[in-house]
């Protein structure tokens, strides 16, 4: 691959905290998520993925920028728009795709599906299907980090739709009261299913929701991985220093519908097209890398090719792996005492 090696501590994008190596990695990861999701959408169309399938296309910079701030012992929870988070956590695309197709080789042996996948090994604690329910759980993971004094922190992601659930504020209150090491991330993609933030939230300032609980708040451009990364570094430093939780509102955009069956009539084609053409996180980072002369056309081709192979391999694996054995119906209900 024609990627120029970064010098340690290089500051390629003006005063950016990211090295050129990191920028290339951000690009690679965002592209992996996007290509994976496009392929998942295709498999859904073929009837190989069933039920609900919520794609992350457009929002890639959020999870890629923030995961770059995480340490090994940290934990992550999110909602059901979770494929990007799993890939960013380092989970195997094959196992994720095989779960989407309901195969025995999926992360949940085919018993969880798109919305319910986990990897203790990678610190990914789901994948939760009930809007907002992951936030008390992420707060509890933070509680466990503090209780065990393991130096870890919790990343708890939610959408703008979840922000009006009562349990979010119950969590904010306890996290602040007990100074728990948790980063709350609101991925504001402007629509909770088909209802815009303006139509659902009395105040559109979602970061401001942390203020009554004395939580440090931040608002970040979620279409730029570097901005997200830099904000993440600041947030994590605050949290790891024992100063309690941070609420970060990340302004982002999803290109696809809420789920596969959503025609997205609640927004204009022009709005979508403007985001795609002017604010796409992958295109803009590509331009940055070209401007910095870090990666050339050959380099991008090599990255694209590598990603395509990974995704095709995952798609193939997800179709050739066997369905769960019928005996799996009766396993994993309770742990044998």
């Amino acid at each position: 691959m024609a990627i120029k090696k970064a010098t340690r501590g290089a500051t390629p994008a003006g005063n950016s905290a990211a090295t050129t190596e990191q920028l290339v990695e951000f690009y690679r990861q965002m592209l992996l998520i996007r290509r994976f999701e496009e392929r998942a959408g295709q498999l859904y169309g073929m009837g190989l993925i069933g039920g609900f399938c919520h794609l992350y296309i457009g929002q890639e910079a959020v999870v890629v920028g923030l995961t770059a701030c995480a340490n090994k012992q940290d934990t992550v929870v999110t909602s059901y728009r979770d494929h990007g988070h799993m890939l960013a956590c380092g989970m195997d695309p094959k196992g994720v795709m095989a779960e989407l197709t309901g195969r025995s080789t999926g992360y949940s042996k085919g018993k969880g599906g798109s919305m319910h996948m986990f990897s203790r090994e990678k610190g990914f604690f789901g994948g939760h299907g009930i809007v907002g329910a992951q936030i008390p759980i992420g707060t509890g993971l933070a509680f466990a980090h503090k209780y065990k004094n393991d130096g870890g922190m919790s990343f708890a992601y939610m959408g703008d739709g979840a922000i009006n659930q009562g349990q979010i504020y119950e969590s904010f209150n306890m996290a602040s009261l007990w100074s728990l090491p948790v980063l709350y991330v609101v991925e504001n993609n402007k629509y909770g299913m088909g209802t815009s933030v303006e139509r659902a939230s009395a105040s559109p300032d979602l970061a401001g929701r942390g203020e009554p609980w004395k939580i440090k708040t931040m608002t970040v451009d979620g279409m730029d991985a570097v901005s997200v990364y830099e904000a993440g570094l600041e947030a994590c430093a605050h949290i790891r220093a024992g100063h309690g939780p941070v609420l970060m509102e990340v302004k982002t955009y999803r290109y696809r519908g809420h789920s596969m069956s959503d025609p997205a009539k609640y927004r204009t084609k022009e709005e979508l097209e403007k985001m795609r053409s002017e604010h796409d996180p992958i295109d803009s980072l590509r331009q940055t890398l070209i401007g910095l002369k870090v990666t050339d056309e050959e380099g991008f081709k090599a990255i694209d090719k590598g990603i395509k192979e990974i995704v095709l391999e995952a798609a193939e694996y997800s179709q050739t792996s066997p369905e769960p054995d019928p005996s799996e119906l009766w396993t994993d209900i309770v742990v044998a005492a």
């Binding site: 008390p136 992420g138 509680f143 466990a144 209780y147 119950e170 306890m174």
Partner: peptide, 26 residues
């Protein structure tokens, strides 16, 4: 007080928090 903890009146919140703590090894 580390192990015997008064919560606010917030059943939904502390039940969910405890589930998360159980996932986290407690």
């Amino acid at each position: 007080s580390k192990r015997v903890i008064d919560t606010p009146i917030t059943e939904h919140g502390f039940a969910g928090l405890a589930v998360g703590a159980a996932f986290g090894g407690l």
